[in-house]
Each structure stands twice: as structure tokens, then as C-alpha cells.
Design a protein around this nucleic acid. Structure first.
Length: 495
DNA sequence: AGGAGTGCGTACTCACGGCT
DNA sequence: AGCCGTGAGTACGCACTCCT
């Protein structure tokens, strides 16, 4: 608990320490929550006791970073789905803060918003995006009611029902985004999410963490946290993956940033200006996104491969019948592994079809021996048609989505091939010695005007490197005359 | 009784557009 | 450009009914 009623301890932390503390705190909470869940729902507990829980780098690192009351006031994210006053609302307040907090509004938003405002929130400037530090908090002049026009408006209208305030916008700062990513990363590490899929409770939890470093008047609810991630970081990561996927033969620097020669990179980023941000730096939040969104290519590859196999097999009548039957009878068939949802194209928004299909598969796997061959054949036919339809639909989607990318990759391919040819030609040219270059030059421009003997004589003296170099670099208008001069010298010397 | 199939509600992703 | 809301499509869990 901050002794002066503000949030100096929290606000005064450096960003990296805040993140460390956040992760430490959340991981500790994981242990407590898991234990609590185990007590309350022993049957519903998933087998996550062995889920990834990163060892804490420095167990003592949170000492004194967050106010104790803040940790204690941290509610379980699952239960925390409603808009609630910010954590500091429960902390001892200044008289002004208490007056504001006690002013009840139907939505509850107004009071919490003003509480935040009174606590010094939203005084960030673009030049100083980080949360206000403890020194500023504690040493700032006392906040006067007149500093907040909204406050005086409230005081004069307490008997009236205030109009619902316009929803204030959240102004995201770097530290807020970092905390958001760190919170999501912790959620992923403790195995609460499937792939990159977060449930509402996860967003509530993450938003709660962001609130702890948020110093603004707006209500930072889970939807806004989600929007931030979905609108900014998910597309960013998708873009990064697209970028990486189109690189071949590139190397990585020590940071993991794809690198190539300057010429190749110039060409590439000219062809793909949308990836320019990745030329000199990794995506923002890379270290978090790697673990939050990760590389889903493996999953995609498995899925795609399986479906392609199904498509191929669908063209072979005998094999496909056998494979479909096997998929019905083998518990661990690739059909089951392929996709959780094998959906008939005729089915609409209801997922009953997908469920029944997958259930049919799994259940049939258990009871396959009881079925008649006729039933198997029919079911297999059904399954096969579903798989083929599903695969065809996905293939079409893939083609549509990748069409643009492929075009540009092809464009880049031809451009890079051209560049490569030029570079090779230039390199070969540069790697030739002056003798070779001089002889080539002589052959191409002057040899026709000489007898064969004279040509050989020229070859002879161009074997001397300094002569060859001189011939190559001298002005073109003098080259013919210089050749004749040298031949005369040779003849004179020979005589 | 237990498997198979269905309906419904919830949650999530993605795309889009309006607003600031 | 960033923030935010919304709707379509989709995935999933669960309860229910039907059938063997």
C-alpha cells in the first residue's frame, strides 16, 4: 500500500522491472489458482499440472515493487468480467479522491474514471509516454479541484442524474503494450490458451494487468486490451511471418533478424515496401510474440499435408476406400489428427455437422469392429466426401489468400534473378585480371584490323600486366594508336 | 445403457468501417 | 494512424433426443 494514497511505488518502477514483477506475480498466481481449482473442481481439472511454468529467474525480484494491497486486490480473472473500479479505488484515498469515489453513477465508469484522473492519470505527454514516476507523484504540488473541470461539474450537480459520459479513449503507451504482451505470454506459458487463442477470461486478466500501469481516465476493459492485440500485434506477427516465409537463403544476425547482402535487401525491400520495418529491427514485442503466437507453420504443415494426401487418395478408387475404412477403424488415424473439424460444405453455421463428423470418427474407431462392412463402406464414403469437400474448400481459400503473395513473390523472384545475374556478371568482370580484360577488349574492337601475326604480337605484349592495365584504362581514342606504337616498338626491338 | 445425432449458446478470428 | 465497435463465419462445449 502506498503510504501517501497514490501509486508511487508502482508508477515509479522502470518498465523492465515492472514486466519482471508482472510475470513473477502472475506465475505465483498461477500456482495459487491451480491449487484452488484443484480443490474446487477436482474432476474438471485439466492435465495441466505439468504445463510449462517457467522457472522464475529471480524469485526475489518483486520485493517491494508492487504495493502489497495491489497484489491482494488482484481478483481472479475468471470472476472479473464486469466493469469494476480500478484497483486503486480500494486503496486509501485522499479526501478529494474519496469524494469522487463516493459519487456513485449508474455505470460505475464515471467514478473510476475520475478516480484515475485524480490520481494523476492521463498526464502523460507524447514526449514522456511512460507512466509518471514515483518522484513526480510524491513531489507534485497538491492537486486542486479546480484543476479538473469535470470534478467541479460533478460537485455542483450531485443531486442530478448525470448523463452517461462519453466513453473515454484509452491512450496506449509502450509500457502498457509491453505489460499486455507480458501478461498474454504468461497465460500462454501456463498453458491456458490453445495455440494463439485467448478466452475472454484471459483478456480480462491481461487487461487487469495493464490497468496497473495505466494512468488514464478511460476504462481499460478486456475488449480494449483484446482490440489492441488483435488490431496491432496479430496483424504485425502475421506480416512478420509472411515476410520470413518469403525469404530464402537469408541468414540471421545475432538478434534473429534476417539479413542478406545490401543489394539483395535493397531489391527485396523495394519490392516489398510493407516489410521495410523489418529491415533493421524485429517486430515490436518480438520476444513476447514468439511465445504468444509462435510459429504455427508446423501445425499448418501437418494439416495441409494430411489434406493433400486425402485429395490425392480421393482420385484412387480402391485406395481411398481402404484408407477411409482404415480411418474408421484405427483410433489414431490421420483423419482424426488432421483436423478437429471435418465439416460438410452443406452444413451451415451450426457446428453440429463438424461435431458429429469428428465424433463419428472417434466413436466409430472404438466400435468399428461391431459394424457391418456395408455400414463402414457407407460411412467411409461419407467421410471421404467430407474430407474431399473440406480439402477443396480450404485449397480454394488458400489459393485466394496466397494469390497476391505469390504474384509478388514471383515478381520478386524474377527481379532477384535479374539482380543475381547482374551481380554475377559484375563479379566475374571484376574478378578478371587486366590481361584477360585487355585481350577481350582488343579482340572485340581492334583485332579485325590486324594480321594474324600482329594479333599474336599484341597478345604477347598484353601478357605484361602493366601493359594490359594501361590498355584497358586509357582513353578509347588512343587505344588504336597505342597498339600500333607498341607494335612498332616490338618490331624495332626485334630488329 | 450407451452410442449417435442434433440444437443451441458461447467464444473466437477476421474483416470492415466509423470516429478521433 | 490509432482506437473502437460490429457482424459474419467458425469452433467448441453441452444438453437433449433418438436409436440400437
Amino acid at each position: 500500500m502506498a503510504p501517501n494514497g497514490g501509486r508511487p511505488t508502482r508508477s515509479g518502477n522502470r518498465p523492465d522491472r515492472v514486466i519482471d514483477s508482472l510475470e513473477q506475480e502472475m506465475l505465483e498466481e498461477v500456482v495459487a489458482l491451480d491449487a484452488e481449482e484443484a480443490r474446487q473442481h477436482p474432476k474438471k481439472r485439466q492435465k495441466k499440472t505439468s504445463s510449462i511454468r517457467k522457472p522464475l529467474a529471480n524469485p526475489d525480484s518483486t520485493e517491494g515493487r508492487f504495493p502489497k494491497a495491489l497484489e491482494e486486490g488482484w481478483e481472479s480473472p475468471v470472476r472479473d468480467t464486469a466493469i469494476r473500479p480500478s484497483p486503486e479505488a480500494s486503496a486509501p484515498q485522499s479526501p478529494l479522491q474519496q469524494r469522487v469515489v463516493n459519487f456513485q453513477t449508474p455505470s460505475g465508469t464515471l467514478s473510476s474514471s475520475i478516480t484515475n484522473a485524480t490520481g494523476g492519470g492521463y498526464i502523460q505527454s507524447p514526449a514522456n509516454p511512460n507512466p509518471i514516476d514515483s518522484e513526480t507523484m510524491t513531489n507534485s504540488p497538491a492537486i486542486q479541484p479546480s484543476d479538473f473541470p469535470l470534478q467541479s461539474t460533478l460537485n455542483s450537480n450531485q443531486s442530478m442524474t448525470p448523463a452517461p459520459p462519453a466513453k473515454l479513449r484509452v491512450r496506449w503507451t509502450d509500457i502498457m503494450e509491453q505489460v499486455l504482451l507480458a501478461a498474454l505470454r504468461v497465460i500462454v506459458l501456463r498453458g491456458k490458451s490453445s495455440f494463439d487463442c485467448f478466452k475472454r477470461a484471459h483478456w480480462v486478466e491481461a487487461a487487469g494487468k495493464v490497468k496497473e500501469v495505466y494512468e488514464g481516465p478511460a476504462d481499460l476493459d478486456w475488449k480494449r486490451a483484446k482490440s489492441k492485440f488483435e488490431d496491432k500485434y496479430r496483424p504485425l506477427w502475421r506480416k512478420w511471418k509472411d515476410h520470413c516465409a518469403s525469404l530464402s537463403g537469408w541468414t540471421e544476425n545475432e538478434e534473429g533478424l534476417p539479413q542478406n547482402s545490401k543489394e539483395v535487401m535493397d531489391y527485396y525491400f523495394a519490392a516489398f515496401p510493407e516489410y521495410k520495418e523489418f529491415r533493421h529491427s524485429l517486430p515490436v514485442g518480438y520476444k513476447y510474440l514468439v511465445e504468444i503466437l509462435g510459429d504455427r507453420g508446423e501445425f499448418a504443415a501437418v494439416e495441409e499435408t494430411s489434406e493433400e494426401e486425402i485429395i490425392i487418395s480421393s482420385g484412387e478408387e480402391i485406395r481411398e476406400e481402404e484408407e477411409a475404412r482404415q480411418s474408421m477403424e484405427q483410433p489414431i488415424s490421420r483423419s482424426i489428427c488432421m483436423n478437429r473439424s471435418v465439416r460438410s460444405p452443406t452444413q451451415s453455421t451450426s457446428r453440429s455437422g463438424s461435431v458429429s463428423s469428428s465424433r463419428s470418427i472417434s466413436v466409430a474407431a472404438n466400435t468399428g469392429q461391431k459394424r457391418t462392412k456395408e455400414k463402414n463402406s457407407s460411412a467411409a464414403q461419407n467421410l471421404r466426401s467430407q474430407l474431399v469437400a473440406k480439402a477443396a474448400r480450404r485449397k480454394k481459400d488458400r489459393e485466394k489468400k496466397s494469390d497476391k503473395l505469390l504474384r509478388r513473390v514471383n515478381e520478386f523472384g524474377s527481379a532477384s534473378a535479374k539482380l543475381a545475374a547482374e551481380v554475377v556478371a559484375g563479379y566475374e568482370s571484376a574478378s578478371k585480371g587486366p590481361i584477360e580484360k585487355a585481350i577481350e577488349l582488343f579482340d572485340s574492337k581492334y583485332a579485325n584490323g590486324y594480321s594474324e601475326d600482329d594479333v599474336f604480337k599484341v597478345y604477347d605484349f598484353l601478357q605484361r600486366e602493366e601493359k594490359a592495365a594501361a590498355f584497358s584504362v586509357m582513353a578509347e581514342v588512343r587505344q588504336a594508336g597505342w597498339l600500333r606504337y607498341e607494335l612498332r616498338k616490338l618490331e624495332n626491338n626485334g630488329n
